[in-house]
Simulated assay, not measured.
Amino acid sequence: MTAYIHQQPAWPAFNWQPAALEQLLGQVRYQQGHLLGRLEALGVELRSEATLRTLTLDVLKSSEIEGEMLPPASVRSSLAHRLGLERGGLPATNRRVEGVVAMMLDATQQAGQPLTAQRLYGWHHSLFPTGYSGLNPLQVGSWRTGPMQVVSGPMGRERVHYEAPPAEVLQEQMQQFMDWFNGSPELDPVLKAGLAHFWFVTIHPFDDGNGRIARAIADLQLTRADGTGQRCYSMSAQIQAERQQYYDLLETSQRGTLDLTPWLTWFLGCMGRALTAAGHTLAQVLSKAHFWELHQQTTLNERQRRLLIRLLDGFEGKLTSSKWARMAKCSQDTAGRDIADLVAKGILERDSAGGRSTNYCLLWPDARGLNDSSFNAH
């Protein structure tokens, strides 16, 4: 009796029930086409903004699924710089953020290029530029050479969720996977994304980072399915929202038969929910554009413009005059005058919350509080 799917005699001859997926696949493809049509109607500048927001979300949430919290402003800054977009006073980035961003951009902006071992090695090195995962040294930029188990729980009471194929078969199995991924044009490209995600993470060829790379491979394939490098929906954000079901279904499927109907059903459903959620991203992009259209004749100094760009992009937490001064590299008095001027011009308003300090909210033209940020000024 086999414990894991890769021990099945016919591995990796996956199968599924087309009739069970047909309706759901049709719905997802319709949603995909409708959303891409809305994106196309935005124009070049707004499409770029939607892509920046989506990729920022993808990078943040794919890392968050693995328990790593990256600084949102640094991720957006790195992506904006690499895409040639306005950074709006965003902070400098670090080596870790740059590596994750480089992998995601290579997957989505170079989606037409074949998937090779060297490309995957490069992604792995980008994820772990120091050669360490936390305090643990890794074998970076090559297939693992030892056994691999997915475990949870405290030391001494670990639970083994999955055991990957042994290291000695990785070269053959990864070559088989890459040959299939770079070929098989007969398979629907969305189904192929779901299958590729599962197949790669089941092989688990690296010491660490397999989940993030599997999601990048799925994003690469979905970019091919979209037929455009412009991204407007985030699978990683939706997977994070459904994280427990994601892990449960992976474990069940990796211990099951070669019939992947349950996994593909979930993957298509998750994609449909990601496409629905993407409508909010497009609404934010349009609201931001409307904001600048409304204030195109408003006189703003360079500090105010840079800080407003940052606020419109979803500044996290509360902004004090001290924070304004620090980000704008100006004095506290200058920060206070900047804020007072924006209040007078109807761009910021005092929050009624009161307290020991004065709070301010950004006034959106269409809807208040899309970034859920309020600002304290000391």
Score class of each variant (00 low, 15 high):
residue 88 G to W: 15
residue 40 E to K: 14
residue 210 N to D: 00
residue 46 L to P: 00
residue 57 L to E: 15
residue 48 S to T: 10
residue 283 A to E: 14
residue 75 V to M: 03
residue 351 D to T: 14
residue 158 E to I: 07
residue 251 E to C: 05
residue 105 L to E: 09
residue 113 Q to S: 12
residue 175 Q to N: 15
residue 312 L to F: 01
residue 148 M to V: 00
residue 55 L to I: 07
residue 119 R to V: 12
residue 7 Q to M: 12
residue 346 G to K: 11
residue 95 R to V: 13
residue 241 A to K: 14
residue 77 S to G: 13
residue 12 P to T: 08
residue 296 Q to N: 11
residue 179 D to C: 06
residue 161 H to N: 09
residue 251 E to H: 03
residue 362 L to C: 10
residue 160 V to K: 02
residue 261 T to N: 09
residue 281 T to K: 00
residue 146 G to W: 02
residue 319 L to R: 03
residue 272 G to T: 01
residue 26 G to L: 13
residue 316 E to L: 08
residue 238 Q to C: 12
residue 122 G to L: 03
residue 25 L to M: 11
residue 232 C to A: 15
residue 288 K to Q: 15
residue 260 L to N: 03
residue 9 P to H: 13
residue 3 A to L: 14
residue 22 E to I: 00
residue 250 L to M: 11
residue 352 S to G: 11
residue 6 H to S: 10
residue 52 L to S: 06
residue 255 R to P: 06
residue 225 A to G: 07
residue 327 M to Y: 14
residue 220 L to N: 13
residue 16 W to V: 06
residue 137 P to T: 08
residue 181 F to K: 08
residue 100 V to I: 13
residue 131 G to A: 11
residue 186 E to D: 09
residue 93 T to H: 08
residue 264 L to H: 08
residue 215 R to K: 07
residue 203 I to W: 01
residue 277 A to H: 09
residue 320 T to W: 02
residue 275 L to M: 12
residue 204 H to T: 01
residue 355 G to M: 05
residue 370 L to G: 02
residue 51 T to E: 07
residue 127 L to R: 09
residue 111 A to K: 03
residue 126 S to Y: 11
residue 354 G to A: 10
residue 272 G to N: 04
residue 93 T to I: 01
residue 114 P to V: 08
residue 316 E to I: 13
residue 290 H to F: 04
residue 359 N to V: 12
residue 55 L to F: 06
residue 43 G to A: 04
residue 198 F to W: 06
residue 373 S to V: 05
residue 233 Y to M: 05
residue 245 Q to R: 14
residue 189 P to S: 05
residue 230 Q to H: 13
residue 68 E to Y: 10
residue 219 D to Q: 12
residue 306 R to G: 12
residue 237 A to G: 11
residue 117 A to W: 01
residue 290 H to K: 12
residue 205 P to L: 04
residue 207 D to P: 04
residue 185 P to E: 11
residue 156 G to M: 05
residue 141 G to S: 08
residue 183 G to R: 15
residue 72 P to K: 10
residue 52 L to N: 06
residue 345 K to P: 00
residue 76 R to D: 08
residue 362 L to K: 08
residue 191 L to T: 08
